[in-house]
Amino acid sequence: MRTSQEAIALQVRNLRKAYPDVVAVDGLDLEVYSGECFGLLGPNGAGKTTTIEICEGLNTPDSGEVLVLGRRWGQDDRALRELLGISLQETQFSEKLTVAETLQLFRSFYRVGPDPTDVIAMVQLQEKAGSRVGQLSGGQKQRLALACALVGDPELLFLDEPTTGLDPQSRRQLWDLIEAFKSDGRSILLTTHYMDEAERLCDRVAIVDHGRTIALGTPRELISRLRAEHVLEFALAEDQVVDEDPLRRIDGVCAADRRNGTYRLQVGELHRAMPALLHELRRQGVQLAELRTHSATLEDVFVSLTGRNLRDE
């Protein structure tokens, strides 16, 4: 069925959607290339679900343009839907049906696609094929939702938080699935709160906040834009404070800030910054309660752009 090989699987230009009390999407642009996995990252309420549902043709924008596999919604929606696989943020499938029955139902809507039993095996629900959906665990339900998205052999896959609530092992299994899907030259748009997931799966990511794209690129690009490969965090023994300005002047430190009593330094060269930091703290006469370092992640990109944590409310 895959005939067209558009260079761009999904194109969104200047998308806007306002609800009575909030502008959910505020002039958002994005492009998903064919064969790529594109990630939408952002805190709660950033407008990810609104954006993805507009792309899925389930919500209408106030303005802006959406091209899905080169087509617009409202022309031949049914033909377009044959090519899309969709997993919504929260869907409860009928609890009285079994896993196999649910997939049979969804398979019946598509002209072509794999056998339901194959899809069940793909998401590793074979043991549960005969169980009622109502008796599945949260993670198993997520895998069922993914199976329902795959059962029409889609060209473009929309996944809204596909791994939220999964245990680490199931998440890794799901990543393998998504990677296998991608290696067939098909495209994915997904949203997630997990930075490791985005770094591992996504060729490119857009960080979205208040309905706008605030950063766009490959995970590596975005992280390298920080000009600091490491993040150094420390906390002081009870109620002590330290003057931040001298910290910023330490060789190898690119930025420093303090939130909730934790100091956070973005550091280019850890081996030079660390001794200097310890020296400076001793000079100010304060005691460390905690000291951590990690390699910079997308989370740090987000924090440095907005001053907030991704999973803050």
Partner: peptide
């Protein structure tokens, strides 16, 4: 909503 996201 999930159903109308398919070609049903």
């Amino acid at each position: 909503k999930r159903l109308i996201a398919t070609p049903m």
